[in-house]
Each structure stands twice: as C-alpha cells, then as structure tokens.
C-alpha cells in the first residue's frame, strides 16, 4: 500500500490499535501490520512521531512502564482519543458505503 495513501489515515489507524488497551510502540507497529495483513509498509520510525503528536493533541497518553520485564513507553487512548476514534469510524463507514455504491457491484447497466 502506498505510503502517501496510508499517511492520511495513520492517526486513525494508530487510535484504532489502542482501542483494546494500552500498548508499547513496537506492539502498535506489530498490530498495524497484523491487522492489515502486512499491507502497511510505512517506515516504522514514523510511527513514534505520530504517536507523540497524538499525545500533544490530547488523544493519547503515554508513560514508561515495565512490560515483559523491560521498561517501555506505553500508550493508551484518552477519552478525547476514544471520541475521535468513534468519529473516524463513523466517517469511514459513510465514506466506504458511498464509494462502494459507485465502484462496487460490477459494471452499471446500460441506460435506456
């Protein structure tokens, strides 16, 4: 998948990976790759600045904590982040439904 297309949705994708609970950075990257079937090939180093920007925006919060015996910075959704994710999901469903109505279902019947 093209990086440019992905970058426009990266914030929403990152929020979605945190919907199930707090994760550290590499676990977020693994979740993105797993849930996309490996289609997301963005440089992993760009994920961390995106997470910090979401933190600046108040949509995620982070802290150093011990995970698997190691100190890691873990991220979680804030209430504002949860609301933003819900809004993104609603907008995405409306968008895909509209596009599916036009592109899906094969060739259009010929006009009389």
């Amino acid at each position: 998948m093209k990086s440019d297309a992905l970058r426009g949705h990266l914030d929403a994708l990152l929020l979605a990976t945190l919907d199930g609970g707090q994760l550290h950075g590499y676990a977020i990257i693994e979740a993105l790759q797993r849930r996309s079937g490996g289609a997301l090939d963005l440089p992993t180093g760009t994920v961390y600045p995106a997470l910090r920007r979401l933190e600046t925006a108040g949509l995620v919060a982070s802290e150093w904590s011990t995970v698997g015996g190691r100190q890691r910075r873990t991220y979680r959704l804030t209430k504002a982040g949860q609301r933003a994710l819900d809004a993104e999901r609603t907008a995405w469903r409306e968008f895909t439904a509209a596009i599916e109505g036009v592109l899906g279902g094969g060739p259009w019947p010929a006009q009389a």
Binding site: Y26, I29, Y48, R70, R73
Partner: peptide, 17 residues
C-alpha cells in the same frame, strides 16, 4: 533522550522478531 531510548527499544524489538 526519551525519543532515542524509545527508538532504540523499537529497533531491538524488531531485530528480536
């Protein structure tokens, strides 16, 4: 230092994988 520590952690996680 915080950003670099996180980057280093991530790289070691990826290398381990």
């Amino acid at each position: 230092d915080d950003l670099l520590a996180e980057a280093r952690d991530s790289l070691h996680d990826a290398a381990a994988a």
